[in-house]
Amino acid sequence: MDIYLILSGTSGICWTIVYIECIRLGFKQKTYAMPFWALALNIAWETIHSILGYRENGLSIQVIFNTIWFLFDVLILLTYFKFGYKHFTNFLPKKIFLVWSLIVLVFSYCIQYIFVHEYGLVKGASYSAFLQNLIMSVLFIEMFIQRRSDQGQNLTIAISKFIGTLAPSILFGIVGINEFGGPNFFLLVTGILIATFDLIYIALLLNNRQNKIS
């Protein structure tokens, strides 16, 4: 089997697990399980690249995953608006919470469009995906610290995110694709940074689990 399909498929399956688990935990624990800025950037990325990707390449494996992820992110977004305000009640009125959330969503669509406009479809998608993934890694750690618990978080999400990003990091940063003319140093380094923060997050969750047991 082609290495591109193996790595793309691995990434797609792992990220699908992340989204499903975020939905499950969100409704079960009445919270949201993905940091909101990361969620907003994700849903904007998936909207734009599902549509433009289909126009450019037809029904490719990436377009299929993008569309599935968009539908899952809609459900995660629902958990955010349904349960998320309780995490902001101490310092933010509900109307401001809703207005701010909508502003973040609009800004996220603008940011994703800028990447496509400046770098083209494939490069724009790759650069923005890796950067927002790095932001997500940092925000997961911040969410764990702010909540002072693993509410809405677990090792399934953390490990699946780690593997789901490691695969494209290898694909773009080491194997290389034609659109980049071979391995891309920027994506490789960004992938290493993401993996580092993901491993820190996994370690925090493992330590938290150990503390619960002891």
Rank of each mutant, 00 (worst) to 15 (best):
I68F: 11
I48Y: 06
I43W: 05
I103W: 03
I61P: 04
I96L: 13
S50A: 13
I61C: 00
I61Q: 10
I103C: 07
I96C: 01
S50K: 07
L52K: 14
F83Y: 15
I76L: 06
L52T: 13
K82H: 04
W37R: 08
K86S: 15
Y80G: 09
P35Y: 00
K86G: 13
F97L: 08
A38D: 03
I48W: 13
V63M: 01
I76V: 15
W45E: 03
L102D: 05
F91K: 15
A38F: 02
L39Y: 09
D73W: 10
L78M: 09
T89H: 14
A44G: 00
N57E: 08
T47K: 06
L92F: 06
F81C: 07
I43Y: 02
F70Y: 09
R55W: 05
K82Y: 05
V74D: 03
P93C: 04
I103F: 06
W69P: 00
F97S: 06
Y85S: 14
I103G: 02
R55Y: 08
L39K: 10
I64S: 04
T67L: 07
V74P: 00
L41M: 10
N42L: 00
S101D: 08
K86P: 07
F65G: 00
V63Y: 03
S101V: 09
A44H: 01
N66A: 08
E56G: 02
N57R: 10
A44I: 06
F36G: 01
V99G: 00
G58L: 07
S60N: 03
I68M: 07
T47Q: 00
Y80D: 12
T79R: 11
F72T: 04
L52E: 13
F97I: 10
A44N: 01
L39G: 05
L92T: 12
L71D: 00
L59D: 01
T47Y: 11
F91D: 14
E46M: 04
I61F: 03
T79V: 09
T89L: 09
H87V: 08
I68Y: 09
F83V: 12
T79H: 13
A40K: 09
L98K: 11
A40Q: 10
S60K: 05
L77T: 15
F65C: 05
K82R: 14
A40Y: 12
L59E: 03
N42M: 03
A38T: 09
S101G: 12
I103E: 02
T47D: 00
F70R: 01
Y80M: 12
I76C: 06
N42P: 00
N90K: 15
L59C: 02
F91E: 12
I103R: 03
I96R: 13
N42A: 05
V63D: 01
N66W: 04
F72G: 02
A40E: 09
I96E: 08
N90S: 15
L71T: 07
V74K: 04
N66T: 10
I68T: 04
L77K: 10
